[in-house]
């Protein structure tokens, strides 16, 4: 499965929405977060994720520039996103320099951006939930690999 696809984020949303026990423990989240992945050809994949309560209610592809309307967005080259998801797939969750917070605080591979500092802070208010959300890719990508090999 390509990581620069709505399909992946749909699967991550489904994983979150099915795992109520985990996300209830982490608590409610209320955030519109965009993900931007720049492709080598100059194009970019953009998706808006709408988190409400303990669910990811919205996964929708957005136009160039529309990420600015989200409360915050995370942006980087698709190759770096791939490295992050590879680390998640390899270890079952992001490790070391590949967590969302570490990536965005270093800022050399993936940047956190927001039109409003309050949106920027929201990324941190819900950080553990967001980390668990992307960490679920370990299972999604593992299933995909199993399907491909089968």
């Amino acid at each position: 499965m390509r990581i620069d696809s709505v399909e992946l984020f749909d699967r991550l949303a489904s994983a979150m929405n099915a795992d109520t026990g985990r996300y209830e423990l982490l608590g409610d989240i209320d955030l519109d977060l965009a993900v931007v992945m720049h492709r080598p050809d100059g194009d970019a994949f953009r998706v808006l994720l709408g988190f409400r309560g303990i669910e990811c209610e919205t996964v929708v592809s957005i136009e160039a520039g529309a990420e600015v309307a989200a409360e915050c967005w995370v942006e980087g080259d698709v190759a770096h996103w791939q490295e992050m998801f590879d680390d998640i797939a390899r270890h079952g969750h992001a490790t070391g320099a590949w967590t969302l917070n570490t990536l965005t605080i270093m800022g050399d591979k993936i940047q956190l951006k927001a039109a409003d500092p309050m949106g920027w802070d929201k990324f941190h208010r819900f950080n553990q939930t967001l980390q668990d959300f992307v960490d679920a890719a370990a299972n999604v990508l593992d299933e995909e690999a199993s399907n491909v090999s089968a």
């Binding site: 969750h93 917070n101 570490t102 802070d121 941190h124 553990q128």
Partner: peptide, 27 residues
């Protein structure tokens, strides 16, 4: 920063959970 430089997943978790609380207070 603490989360970014944490030597193990234990410290990463500690800093991440504290970070969430702190961001609320700042908000």
């Amino acid at each position: 920063q603490g989360e970014a430089i944490a030597p193990t997943d234990v410290e990463k978790r500690i800093f991440r959970m504290c970070m969430q609380d702190e961001a609320r207070h700042v908000a």
